[in-house]
Design a protein around this nucleic acid. Sequence first.
DNA 1: TTGTAAGCGTTATCAT
DNA 2: ATGATAACGCTTACAA
Lengths: 352, 352
Amino acid sequence: MVTLEDVARLAGVSRSTVSRVINGQPHVRAETKARVLAAVERLGYRPHPIARSLATRRTKVVSMLIPESLTKLFSDQFFAILLQGAVHACNTRGYQMVLALFDDPRRQEELYRQLLQNGYVEGAVVASAAPDDPVIQALREDGIPVVAVGKQPGLPYVDVNNYGGARMATEHLLSLGYRRIATITGPLSHLHVQDRLAGYRDALKAHGIPYEEELVVEGGFTEVGAMAAVAKLLPLRPEAIFVQSDTMAAGVMRALRSHGLRVPEDVAVVGFDDIPLASLLDPPLTTVRQPIRLLGFMAVELLVDLLDGHNPGPRENTVLPVELVVRSSCGITRKQFLEKRSEKPFPVKGET
Amino acid sequence: MVTLEDVARLAGVSRSTVSRVINGQPHVRAETKARVLAAVERLGYRPHPIARSLATRRTKVVSMLIPESLTKLFSDQFFAILLQGAVHACNTRGYQMVLALFDDPRRQEELYRQLLQNGYVEGAVVASAAPDDPVIQALREDGIPVVAVGKQPGLPYVDVNNYGGARMATEHLLSLGYRRIATITGPLSHLHVQDRLAGYRDALKAHGIPYEEELVVEGGFTEVGAMAAVAKLLPLRPEAIFVQSDTMAAGVMRALRSHGLRVPEDVAVVGFDDIPLASLLDPPLTTVRQPIRLLGFMAVELLVDLLDGHNPGPRENTVLPVELVVRSSCGITRKQFLEKRSEKPFPVKGET
DNA sequence: TTGTAAGCGTTATCAT
DNA sequence: ATGATAACGCTTACAA
């Protein structure tokens, strides 16, 4: 391994000087600088990050935390895309991303300490966790720099307009004439689940439709959970279902099919996320598109700003807009939607 | 921050002694050990990994490398599941996993050096790359400890029986009476693509069916690539298509549908992977199941063994078995398959 | 069994 | 503008 020392010797200067040119500090004569650079080049010198870290207490490593409760959802494309955005931001900012899955409930604590206390990791972005998740608690207590994906009280976060998206989805269904609209939610402990539920509820209310508790069922964000939810819902004869994630919507469509029901003729379905899966379903899924990649990207941008001491600004929370993508699972094709919209514009509200 | 020094002082011993008990070395009196442990406990001491790394030249971090050519495929559930297995292995072995996506073609080189030369990363597992991928080249040249997912000449690897799987899939189709069987492949530069193609070809040959070049089309492992492939294939009137990945199979089914063709009545489809998506398609996809999670798990197990100096054994390559999962896109339901099989057992060969 | 001391490769402070 | 020198927190001969 070639060290600062080696370079210094070859360039005929001291270690400190080499360090200065490496770090682009001022106050070094152009000629010396050139000599040092030549030596660096000649020797193929590369700084040793570990040594540097020991001296500076910086590592340029952040982590994406997936709480235990979400680990089983990890094959949902949502996370892959989120990760892609996050890693992309790391790439542009010169950081490395360690992926932490708390997959063993018994080792939560241990894995947490290993990673974050005294670890390589300078800060973390934690993916859509419930506020009472132990990881969130620990993070908040330890005061570790962290930004959440999804609203998180007491933490800086980036989120999407869940309320508006759910409301748009539901109002779209209403505009198509459906009246008996059920919804399948994620775990209610999650704030974004509550927001989406509120959007659904308010849309109904705005149209003078009573809110029926039996029409909202928890699907746990999984395909099988959603299938079970459908089983509960079916006796209630819903005309349409607003499902809080595309993965669950896929489960819903499968369950409906197995009950001999057609989508959208017998039951219309609208999802949430717009992951690639959505357009592959049959019929293609109408859904609320979130900018997932951007969510991941902005989360680490924000985190890195925090770590690098930029952006000490007050407003650290971002809410990204969502958009309704009309395909055919709702009973109207995209083209029809556009036509309908132009002749008799339907107010798609939602606080963007 | 509480350091070794602090603990030493409190316990009334030297730094070295504390270090010894921390690292569980022998030759330390039980009584001293207890005293040190007490001090550690009292002070809440935790070793500083960076400092330790500088001294030992070990970091306990490995990386999962996704070559640039695959980054756009990253939302394929295959990778999420692979990652899950890999991270799980890291968790059990006390390693951290940094996820590296070479998403910017122009910065390939730079990102590579940043990560691997002098970096935190001790070793890497590289996901199904083509042998001529620059990353593979660099890795091999630099002699960095690495294990590949998917056969990789000159590198230790873990792989699945691609040949056998493809052969099983094709023979299954043959056994159902299809004769004109097309195939949609991934990029032919990938070894596992070639293996799967060979399995397809040999199955045909074994049944005396001539191999027609026009019936094999490259789909690039993407949904849209596969849709384009279908467009090319359709004029040739295939009765069935063996598709080299489930994601592509989803694209195939979508394309078929848009051409007014039914699956399996008009064209039968078999996929490869058995990601969760497969069972969500309509009709549910018959496919070749690979143990994806295990693949990821074993890859890092192998890597960590390498790094920790265990397992200096000779045979470092593992080939995992695959299995045909019969659903209904092939034109036969699971139940029918089992019945058929018991009355007139069809030899599902493939070198396991 | 325990302690002393020399690294590991940088950065940072303070002279000069 | 440059150079000594002391950290950074730990491991590891080597000595005692």
